[in-house]
Every structure is written in structure tokens, then in C-alpha cells.
Amino acid sequence: MTTSLPKKIWIYFLLIVTSFLVFFPVMYAFLISFMTGPELLQGKFLPQSFSLDNYIKVFDRLPLLNYLLNSFIVSVSVMLGQLAVCSLAAYAFVFIQFKGRDFIFFLFISTMMIPWEATMIPNKFTIQKLDWLNTYQGLTLPFFALAFGTFLLRQHFKTIPKELHEASQIAGLSKFAFFRRVILPVSKTSLVTLGAYGFLTTWNMYLWPLLITTNKSVRTVQIGLKQLQSLETGTEWGVVMAGVIVVIIPTLLLLFLGQKQLQKGLTQGALK
């Protein structure tokens, strides 16, 4: 099936115009991040030079390196925690026959109906009572269990032939050995999808770190952005945008590398 030439030109035209519009805010932020105050006031569109002054300033203004490190630790912890907790649960749902499985499955589904924001008040007090304000565990532990992640992995585990399970039992592998040495290696793709999803959503989390961090010790970059913007005094938008660019680079890179994988994995988890 070949597409006719006029139609092709028409599609390319639409693709180029719309993708330019979608990407415009990011390019705009990138260009602003190199501008000085006077340039901004003159309303220039392109900076005079691509000097890194604003980038140096933003690291001066905020403990940005510290925040980046915190975000990285928190995101990786949630990612690993979710992978461990969700894969264990998914394994039980697929490979173990037990009474009450449907009921527990229903409990898992019901957690998806409870918006996280509706429970944040008691959750904040729980963390406070555990004395976990300003700690990594306070930022990460509540997010380890994830119904969506469990379903995603369960979907994939279901496609693993049952014969493999029987063979492993005959070979005398324990349930846990089967899980660790057979199931996890053959499910690498879904684990990567869930991992990328977990990292991305945690890196971008805003409301929870806002509630749980009161000083810079474990504060994440997203809260750093809020601080930066409120410190903003008129003409230093270049510095603010430099901060924005630094913060979005890790997740943009992750998305560019894993876009195909993420798209396949998410649609699978969503629809089957």
C-alpha cells in the first residue's frame, strides 16, 4: 500500500506544524535559559550567545545538585520497591491456587478507585507519627504497592507456559527459586516498562514531597522548582529556565530511549 504523493506532502505538513507547536514550550524554555535580563526585556527570541552563566547561577542559588541526588535516590528506590512488591504479588495471583484469591484481587482493584489525594491527610499524620518527615522512607514507602503495576506484570506472567511451572516442580525447584530464576528473567520487558513508568512518575511527583519535606535534606527537584520560581525577582527568568532544563533532561532522555517500550507495555497493561 503506497500513499499518494500529494497526500504524503499534506501529512508531512501537518506533522511538522503540529509537532513544532507541541515542542515549542520546551524549545522556548531552552532559549530563554541562555538569556540575560536585558535581553528578556527587549523581547528577543534568540539569545545573543549560548553562555552557561544562568546554569552556573542556578546551582549557586539553590542546592540543586543536592535536590537532583535526592530525586534520583527517591525515584530509584520507588522503582525497585515497586518491582519487588508488584512482581511478588503478581506471581501469587498467577501461579498459586488458593482460597480467597478473587477476594484479594478485588481488594487490589478497589485501591485504584481511591484517589490518592483523598487519603493524603491521614497519610501525612501517619508519616509524622512514625517520625518519618524529611526521610527517604517517608517519601518512598507509601508508593511501593501499586495495583496497576501488579496487573501489568500479572498480564505478562499469564503468557508464560504452564509447562514451565510443572517442569520446575519436577526438577525440584522451590516456588521462590522458580520465581527468581525462571519468571523474572523471562519477564524482563514488562519489568523494564514498569520500572521506567515508576521512575518517571516518582521523579515528577509534586504534592507528596511538598507535604513530607520541610527542609533541604531530602527535598526533591520538583519542590526546588517551586522555590526557584518564588525566589524569582522580575528579570532573572533565564536562571529559572536553566533550572527547568536541568530538571527535565533526565526524564526526557528516559522517555526518548524508552518511548516504544513504554507505549507497548502501557497499552498492554491497560487493555487486557
Binding site: 507541541v22 519542590i223 517551586k226 533550572g243 530538571v247 526518548f256
Partner: peptide, 18 residues
């Protein structure tokens, strides 16, 4: 495809500041 999906990689905080 990468460009259209890019906003998913940009946090709400960063987008809002832009």
C-alpha cells in the same frame, strides 16, 4: 512520535514554570 509523547517526560512543576 517522540516529539508528541515528549510532554509525558516533563513534570507538572517544570511545565507550570514554563
Amino acid at each position: 512520535r517522540t516529539v508528541y509523547s515528549s510532554t509525558m517526560g516533563i513534570s507538572v512543576a517544570a511545565s507550570s514554570v514554563i
